[in-house]
Structure formats: C-alpha cells, structure tokens
Amino acid sequence: MIVTVTPNPALDLTWHVDRILPGGTHRADTGVARAGGKGLNVARVAHAHGAPVRALATAGGPTGDEFAAELAASGVPHELIPVRGATRRSIALVDEHLGDTTIVNERGLNPGPEEWAALAEAVRRSLGDAPVRGRKPVLVLSGSLPPGAPDELLPGLIRLGRNVGATVIADTSGPALLAAADAGATVLKPNAAELAEATGIADPVAGACELLHRGASLVLLSRGADGMLAVTSEEIVRARLAEPLAGNPTGAGDAAVAACAVLLARGVKDPVALLRRATAWSAAAVLMPLAGEIHPSWPDLESAVMVDSPSLTALRRPSVERTPR
C-alpha cells in the first residue's frame, strides 16, 4: 500500500494559450480544473499503474467542494480531512508556441491544531491498514506546507511512518527538506534549486551528501533536462535521456516519486532500478498536458535511459562552498 499525504493541496487550474505575452490579454479554450497538489499527483500516477493507493489531504471552502468532487470522480482511493480554510488554487498557463509553462501558486491557509491532528490520525489509520503479504507500506509526504504550519508537522509524520515500519519518501523544499532529513526520511527527492536553497551548498552532490549525513538513506536529485542523480552513502549514479523532451514539466517530479513509491512497495530497493524508472516516468509526464499522468510510451523511454556512475567527489561531510542566503 502507498499512502500519500498532501498537506497543502490545491485546485489546479490549467489553460493553454498560443503564446504568453507579458502585459497582454490572452484567450484560451475552457480550462481544466483538477484536484491537485504533489501527493495527489503521485497517487494518480501510482493508481493508474495498478498500485494500491490511499491519498490523504485536507479540503475546505468552495474551492474545496470543487476539489472534492473532482477527486471523487477520478476514482483514486482517498480520504479528505475537512478544514475551515478554503483550499488554495494553482494556476498553470501553458505557452503552446514555446512549450513552456508559467505557474502561479497560492500559498494556502494553515489548518488549526485539531485539523492537523485529524490528518495525523488518518495517516496512522491508513498505515495500519497498509501491510500486504508481509510487505512494508510506503508513506509519501509531498509538497509545500502552508504558511504557519507547525515545525513538528513533517517530522512527526515521518516518525509515525517509521514507527510502523513504513518506507518514507519526502518531496518538499526549504527548511522542511532539512527537517525531513533530520527525522530520517528514507528517500528525499529535491531538485537542484531546492537542494541549494535548503542546504546553502552550491554543489549538488555535496548538498545531497549533507542530507545523507542528516539521516536520509537515498537522495533522488532532479536536474531538469540533465536527468537525475541517485546518491547514497555507497554510490552516485546518473540517469538521463540523450535529448531532453519538450512539454509540460509541472508533474515530472511527482511522476518520479510515484515510480519510486511503486517499486519500493513491490520490494525493489536497488537505487539504479529506482533511478531508471523515476527518470523514465518523469520524462513521460512531460509529454502529458496535465500533472498526475504519464505517457504510455514510458517503457520505450526507460529503455532509452542512459545510466552511468560519473567520477564525482567521494562522499564526505562537506566543509564547503555555500550559496548566499
């Protein structure tokens, strides 16, 4: 069972326009509204590929009603925690001419203590239902935290998962990324910019090593068109396609997390296998118009993924060049 938690979900609104002109007026066909947030995108991809999933999130206000209705129609198994604050919105404008996407994310409203407690209880209950044929559950914590969220929220959920033997994947940013490493999340999946911002370390491999020294076991580092790195205490592996793909990158990282979660739920732990599948699913997500989906050509993409072990600085606690904050 894969249990995903989206602590700051959003109603995703997507419009496709011919070309984005700053300061201009744009016309578009009717947009698409979808229950979103990184954990829900992970759950959609995993569910579509046959993995047992339960998606947990909060929902509130008029946008929360629309959010809940769309998620119910999706068929993804889920549980929504009612909250007083309205569910935020995320707006994506896809430039068809350039193949680029411009995103505006509302920050979200912080649930109250009793609402966070209800979410934690839903996580505990879901993980208790999760073991299947002796396999450990996988807990995925994805996305931003709303402003004002308790500092203990993410570490507490990670410890909850670890206490029941779950493999924990965290895909977050800023101070929460460091907190997830300190709490012992099994897998962390930052991109290069998030890693540099959180650690203050300019070199991405050294930054990944910092997360390992703090307590993570595997860092999957997204590097955009340059593919991904898997960094453990024993090896550094790189995976990439020969040529980058043009399209909508908004769900690429979530597809990579879904790939990792699905394989871990099946008992696959080899970092190379995780990296290869994550790179392929990430690339396949770029080919789709909406986050939470991957293109059916992903097996061909996986076959085309190039994997090597580059000659990089040996793992050690960085002493080190840090980026200005």
Rank of each mutant, 00 (worst) to 15 (best):
D12A: 11
R19M: 11
A28H: 14
T30V: 15
R34H: 02
A35G: 04
G36D: 09
K38M: 03
G39S: 01
N41W: 03
A46I: 08
A48K: 01
P52N: 01
T58D: 06
G60E: 11
G60F: 06
E70W: 03
P77D: 04
H78C: 06
P82W: 06
R88L: 07
D95A: 06
L98T: 15
L98N: 10
N105E: 07
R107H: 12
L109G: 04
N110V: 02
N110P: 02
A120E: 14
E121I: 08
G128D: 07
D129H: 12
A130D: 11
R135I: 02
R135H: 10
V138Q: 03
L139S: 06
V140L: 08
L145I: 11
P150F: 02
E152P: 03
P155N: 02
I158F: 13
N163Q: 08
P175S: 03
L177W: 01
L178A: 00
A183G: 06
G184Q: 02
G184R: 08
V187T: 03
A198V: 00
C209M: 06
A216S: 14
S222K: 05
A225Y: 02
L229Y: 15
I236A: 15
R240I: 08
L245K: 07
A255T: 14
V257I: 12
L263Y: 02
D270Y: 02
P271C: 09
R276V: 14
M288R: 15
L301W: 10
M306I: 13
R317I: 01
P318K: 01
R322L: 05
P324K: 10
P324V: 12
R325C: 12
